[in-house]
Design a protein around this nucleic acid. Structure first.
Lengths: 196, 196
DNA sequence: CCTGTGCATTGATGTATGATAAGAAGGATA
DNA sequence: TATCCTTCTTATCATACATCAATGCACAGG
């Protein structure tokens, strides 16, 4: 819970009494490695703030292949925004890559916080805009860059994840096979590139 | 201007006097086919509501290739949201595919409308969430689907654009070469698929 | 009417990445 | 220590898509 309160206080300036009321609305949950928080068809009722640990969200296509949408480690929020906001059935899985400690943020929480505090509204705006910017960059990379470039971009952007996440998941995030990623890494090693 | 006022009234319930004040804030602009509205390095000062015509936004990679991010025909808004919101230099081009009539929406307009009307705030929220959902789907397609599938998806999603936009631009949007798209279309024709 | 310019098509060839299969290298667990 | 797993690598072959080059149209401007 400490990370979450720190995070929220840093991002939104909510007066203390209201803050205390709000904070009662969220719950903690511990999940084990491999445990699933959301499945396709379900409606995403909570956003998950990661206190400690590592989550991922991903789709599974009709040939059974996984495609990772997002990783979320400490101080990140993982969610299916569309499902949560529009009350639609999700088409994502969310599960835990490591034993994880999450804060459950309900839509109610967000709505109430928005009513109470214009500062929170602003924070929420920024979060949405950041999300859009991030997705934009990813689309652009997928359109224009080779596997190698995409991987380079990943490790500079998420050096921590590069170490914590198994390679086959990184490959999935990049839209390539684990074998291809292995080749790319070999190439990079040849070129005397060291990820450290 | 008619489309824009109709659009805004339908989306946000702003009391008439305030609406009249707001509407004075926007300007009209006519641009010719090929004319450019935004270049990389510039800050995106306006969102462009398309009254009539057709815009596109795109990046150019370091080998000179264009990658189309978005098309916008009547009643669509084209913009670089990140640049506009965060006041950062854009890395997009925006230009006109046809002679086009746009409404210039400044950040001021959006801020003022947000202050005046909670209904407008809500509309804006929905617009952002829709944007996220749309990008999410596109990322998922780029990660998981073949050129053929991506094209099929495009023509069912945007049958109008399929007719108005030159094929090489559609190819660019899909992340393939015009030659590949041509072959994909041939394949589909063989399979007795008719886009009509 | 000719001619230039941009776009779509087609063919030949190349290359990055996928598919499949097998082995090697840890980590966990008994 | 022995035995599983899971992950990562390596090798071979297959394929989707890119690249390069040529041709055919259509349409605009002289």
């Amino acid at each position: 819970m400490q990370n979450f309160t720190k995070y929220l206080k840093a991002k939104a300036n909510i007066p203390e009494p209201e803050f205390q009321l709000l904070i009662k609305k969220v719950k903690l949950k511990n999940i084990e490695k491999g445990e699933t928080l959301l499945r396709p068809g379900e409606i995403c009722r909570h956003s998950f703030f990661v206190e400690k640990g590592l989550l991922r969200s991903y789709t599974v296509d009709n040939s059974g292949k996984e495609h990772i949408i997002q990783f979320g480690s400490e101080n990140w929020i993982v969610s299916d925004r569309s499902s949560a906001f529009f009350n639609e059935p999700s088409d994502l899985f969310i599960d835990a890559i490591e034993d994880t400690n999450v804060v459950l943020i309900s839509s109610d929480f967000i709505n109430e916080a928005s009513e109470i505090s214009s500062s929170f509204r602003h924070f929420n705006q920024i979060a949405l805009q950041n999300h859009i910017r991030h997705q934009q960059k990813r689309i652009n990379l997928l359109l224009s860059a080779s596997a190698e470039t995409r991987y380079m971009n990943f490790i500079t952007l998420y050096p921590d994840l590069t170490l914590r996440v198994p390679q086959w998941m990184i490959a999935s995030y990049l839209g390539i096979t684990p074998e291809s990623l292995s080749r790319v890494r070999k190439e990079l090693a040849h070129k005397n590139f060291r990820p450290n």
